[in-house]
């Protein structure tokens, strides 16, 4: 027993040491270059808000990308979520649909953004498409988990009146899951505002494009301003959506 635990500790330490090498961790660099770091940090202050009108306009574009990416994803996640649910769809439907959603979820929205830029060109629309696909995968899973945990009796009650499958779903299933679904959709909207500012960095429009430009041109004071705006807007949206979700549940 003791030998076993010793072995696992050794293994854990081994993995850490092995990764240290690969990740090129050099703590000394932080100390040796501390002077550099300090002057680098100094470059960020004071933040330069000269172009704040552009930043705000692009931040709004980012939020707009997040809104459309989320709305389209919610619309698609409703049917896909139901098709993923083992208590609604038979295995030969829910298994393949689940794998499809896994794929949409497994690939990061940055990757989708780069692919869609090739397809539809640079700009916010590529960002919308990227968020749409990735978020559909996430929401379909969350929606189907909500559907699988419902009370089956209301559905049976509806079936007993001679209702068809669609009526069973809209009268028996949806009323039970709607608060959870709304809450998940809002949560994904928050995350998508963050993601939308990142997918901009590969060229899919919004504040991310500006952020990428100012970093690449070593304009750190402006970078600081852009980052502050992102932090402000994302926290604001988090707060509002948390408030709405609390009301709904």
């Amino acid at each position: 027993m003791r030998l076993m635990s010793l072995f696992f500790w050794a293994l854990a330490l081994g993995i850490l040491a092995w990764s240290w090498k690969g990740a090129d961790i050099r703590p000394m660099a932080l100390i040796a270059d501390s002077g550099n770091m300090a002057s680098f940090a100094k470059d960020f202050f004071p933040p330069d808000f000269t172009d704040w009108r552009t930043y705000v306009a692009e931040m709004i574009v980012t939020v707009q990308v997040a809104i459309w990416g989320t709305v389209l994803a919610v619309i698609c996640a409703i049917p896909f979520g139901l098709l993923c649910s083992s208590n609604i769809a038979p295995p030969w439907i829910h298994q393949p649909v689940r794998r499809l959603m896994d794929a949409a979820r497994a690939i990061n929205e940055m990757v989708f953004a780069m692919l869609f830029i090739v397809a539809v060109g640079l700009g916010p629309f590529a960002g919308v498409l990227a968020l749409w696909v990735h978020t559909t995968g996430i929401l379909a899973k969350l929606f189907s988990e909500a559907v699988e945990s419902i009370d089956p009796r209301p559905v049976e009650g509806i079936r007993a009146t001679g209702a068809n499958l669609l009526e069973e779903i809209v009268y028996g299933v949806i009323p039970q899951v709607i608060p959870l679904w709304v809450s998940y959709a809002l949560y994904r909207f928050e995350s998508n505002v963050r993601s939308a500012s990142v997918v901009g960095m590969v060229g899919a429009g919004g504040i991310g494009v500006i952020l990428y430009e100012v970093i690449r041109s070593f304009e750190y004071a402006q970078t600081a301003a852009v980052m502050l705006i992102i932090v402000l807007v994302v926290s604001g949206i988090d707060l509002i959506s948390a408030r709405i979700r609390k009301v709904l549940i």
Binding site: T161, A163, N164, E167, V170, Y171, I178
Partner: peptide, 25 residues
């Protein structure tokens, strides 16, 4: 077996789902 968030009127009307056409439901 009535869904908690459904309104009484909707839950009552659900009795005729088997007779109503789908658009009406």
């Amino acid at each position: 077996p009535l869904p908690p968030r459904q309104r009484v009127v909707t839950a009552t009307l659900a009795g005729r789902l088997g007779v109503w056409p789908i658009w009406k439901s």
